[in-house]
């Protein structure tokens, strides 16, 4: 009798231990996001506890998540990509000129942008791999180049408009969906891209090789990873995601000169909140997407609290420092 209770107690303990272990392994980004979202729900039930409200929330949050996934690939490899903000600017401004207010040109414009995105990523990757310029510097140079060339091309300020069909991806909803009420195109784009990149990054050799390079480049090389190829491919993927993210951003926001400014930093912040280590070797598509949602939720939370916008910066700055400090110190303790 006593033995059975003891053993069952032991079992319960074991199960609890397992659960605790499982709980401990949940990345901090989920509880943070959940907490903020629950507070938001209390403050504004209509805005954040109805499907309608949640879908409205995802529309501006999805573009950043797309950018963050691309940035994550490069960060996981131990690199940086500072050019994605400039690519967003390019996509929006150059498209506005290419379109010339003609909806029929939407598809060609998007294809041209993706083509240029591939080219930018290719150059980034080649310069990093063969000229051995650190990616931070390569992409810093690329940022100046892309931004300057774009503004030169359009002549300093936008001169046309983005047509409605170009903008629909970032702007419109699929209406009257059962249960979800409405789904923003942007969220669907994010889900599709997220799925593709989840499989690519977590279920294929490519992802393992990226992480291997980020972990220890020399070791990866010795174990047969084609480092140069992987790096070029990764930079291309990042740039293409930046183009796609830019289409969503432009769709939501419309044309203006400053639209992509600082988005590279936002994307890096989202990655960091999503548990990516700068210096490489760690990364998770889903966590990073939630990192982006968290950033957006913080903005909304401060707004709901009636605090002026500047506090957003203070809070975001503090949070990214804390998340990194927390993970750095806790991983150190494990060692």
């Amino acid at each position: 009798m006593t033995t059975t209770t003891a053993s069952s107690a032991k079992e319960i303990n074991q199960i609890l231990g397992k659960i605790w272990n499982g709980v401990r392994r949940i990345p901090p980004v989920f509880p943070i996001f959940l907490l903020i979202f629950i507070i938001l729900g209390f403050l504004n039930p209509k805005g954040y506890q109805t499907m309608n409200g949640i879908m409205t929330f995802f529309r501006p949050a999805a573009p950043l998540a797309v950018l963050a996934i691309g940035e994550m690939l490069v960060l996981a490899m131990g690199g940086f990509d500072l050019s994605i903000g400039a690519i967003v600017t390019m996509v929006v401004l150059a498209s506005s000129k290419l379109l010339a207010n003609d909806p029929e040109k939407a598809l060609p414009a998007i294809l041209i942008m993706i083509g240029i995105g591939i080219l930018i990523g290719l150059i980034n990757g080649l310069v990093v791999s063969f000229l051995k310029v650190p990616s931070f510097i390569t992409t810093l140079g690329m940022m100046l180049l892309v931004r300057g060339a774009t503004l030169y091309y359009i002549g300093g300020a936008p001169q046309g408009y983005l047509t409605d069909n170009w903008r629909q991806f970032g702007r419109n909803y699929i209406q009257d969906v059962p249960f979800f009420v409405k789904i923003p195109y942007a969220l669907i784009v994010l889900l599709v891209l997220g799925l593709i990149f989840y499989i690519l990054f977590h279920r294929t050799n490519y992802g393992k090789q990226v992480l291997a390079i980020g972990d220890n480049m020399r070791a990866a090389q010795l174990s047969g990873v084609r480092v140069k190829l992987i790096r070029v491919v990764t930079h291309i993927l990042c740039s293409v995601l930046a183009v796609l993210g830019g289409i969503l951003v432009g769709g939501y926001g419309g044309v203006n000169v400053t639209i992509g400014e600082g988005m590279e930093m936002q994307a890096i912040a989202a990655c960091v909140i999503g548990g990516v280590l700068l210096g490489g070797g760690k990364g998770n598509v889903i966590n990073v997407a939630f990192g982006a949602f968290t950033l957006q939720a913080i903005v909304n939370l401060l707004n709901q609290l009636g605090l002026p916008k500047p506090y957003t910066d203070v809070i975001q700055g503090s949070i990214i420092i804390f998340v990194v400090a927390y993970s750095a110190l806790s991983s150190q303790r494990k060692r």
């Binding site: 504004n44 926001g253 419309g254 044309v255 203006n256 400053t258 909304n300 707004n303 709901q304």
Partner: peptide, 15 residues
């Protein structure tokens, strides 16, 4: 920044 402007409108409408 039209992105920001758009967000501001959504925020204030929500509030």
């Amino acid at each position: 920044d039209s992105f920001k402007a758009n967000t501001v409108v959504s925020d204030y409408l929500a509030k």
